[in-house]
Design a protein around this nucleic acid. Structure first.
Lengths: 204, 204
DNA sequence: ATTTAGTTTGACCGTTTGGTCAGGATCACG
DNA sequence: CGTGATCCTGACCAAACGGTCAAACTAAAT
């Protein structure tokens, strides 16, 4: 059983159940740290039953990574050449921060993978991701040549945006340990801070 | 054998050898992903011999974390209240970036730990680290009240510095995959970028 | 109602893992 | 040299791991 297109209603339900449980466990413990038993328990299914739907632990992981890849890059794709350059970038920062708030598990899944050398991911980085970054870096470069935004290295600007926004998902424990917020209020503060930071840094 | 103070020259040599190998393996694969055999092979010693010096895998990991903790916070500790505020912060940023360049393994060791919820580390975060951050946040707050630096939330400012600088160690594979630098030249670019970014953002 | 396709499971397997242990080798020192 | 402390190893163990399989069960179509 490793059909890509689910055929029955049970397949659709259980595959979704398993992937959600797998995301929980992989994002919390990394690929190697996650066990099939853990995922099975989280999904409320038996271990052999998981392996009926996904041929191996590796396959669940692969499915999650490639499944999220597209969604994950959407915020950057939406960075358009029209409109005020500084506000376009700030809007991108806020979209990316919102991703960290709404999908921390996905962020940590990627973080785990990349910190450990991206063994199952390096091709996507050097392919799809690299291409998109080059394209958007060119946009920023053009803005700079027109004097509409500060002359900061576009690639490193993008890296800094990834770093600052994903930090609130990936290092969530640290942020909470230091701020001790009662709820998720620190995301509103982060929003205000990052808007200010990039508006100040980027104005021509 | 779990003496804290090495007594013989062999103990000193082998404990150092083991910790270096353990740092290699833990930082590359995470705690759960690392095996004692791997560490033993990297250290050029037998597995039972490792466990003669460190009672368990857990103990090696603990030793590494607490051993690096102090050094790791040094750059922040050096942030002094005298001198020009903006330049003090920029100097901190550059010290932190230099740590990423010189000690990427240590950075990834911490990253692995924190991304996975810091199970062996949460107490240090909420203790020593939190205290130091509070202290330095107060310094920045005072600068702001004197109008000597931009009014950006001090806590989030510190988070952003951690995020942007550690990014070059923790997500090294991604950075290289996108920039394709021949050598480590991208660190010089990062240095220039981060100096600019924070100088622009922080000037009053 | 019967057949067929799809789903679930308990029992099991080979391998890897962290860790133990008795005994041998080596070192330091009187 | 001798002797006690330190260092090292091969063989071993129990538990955990990813994965298999035959057989039982259930849903759906005829």
């Amino acid at each position: 059983m490793n059909s890509q297109k689910p055929k029955t209603r049970i397949q659709r339900r259980n595959r979704a159940l398993i992937l959600d449980a797998a995301l929980d466990v992989f994002s919390a413990h990394g690929f190697r740290g996650a066990t099939v038993d853990q995922i099975a328990q989280a999904a409320g299914l038996s271990k052999p039953n998981l392996l009926y739907y996904f041929g191996s632990k590796e396959e669940m992981h692969r499915e999650l990574l490639s499944g999220m890849m597209h969604t994950w890059l959407d915020p950057l794709r939406e960075l358009g050449e029209d409109g005020d350059p500084v506000e376009e970038v700030v809007a991108y920062v806020l979209r990316k921060l919102e991703m960290s708030r709404l999908y921390p598990r996905e962020s940590r899944l990627f973080a785990n993978e990349i910190v450990q050398g991206a063994p199952r991911f390096i091709d996507k980085i050097e392919g799809e991701l690299r291409e998109l970054v080059e394209q958007k870096a060119a946009v920023i470069r053009r803005w700079q040549e027109a004097g509409r935004i500060a002359p900061l290295d576009p690639h490193h600007l993008i890296f800094s945006i990834w770093a600052t926004t994903q930090h609130y998902a990936d290092f969530d424990v640290q942020v909470r340990g230091i701020l001790r917020p009662e709820d998720d209020r620190h995301f509103a503060d982060a929003q205000a801070f990052l808007s200010d930071l990039y508006r100040r840094a980027l104005r021509p």
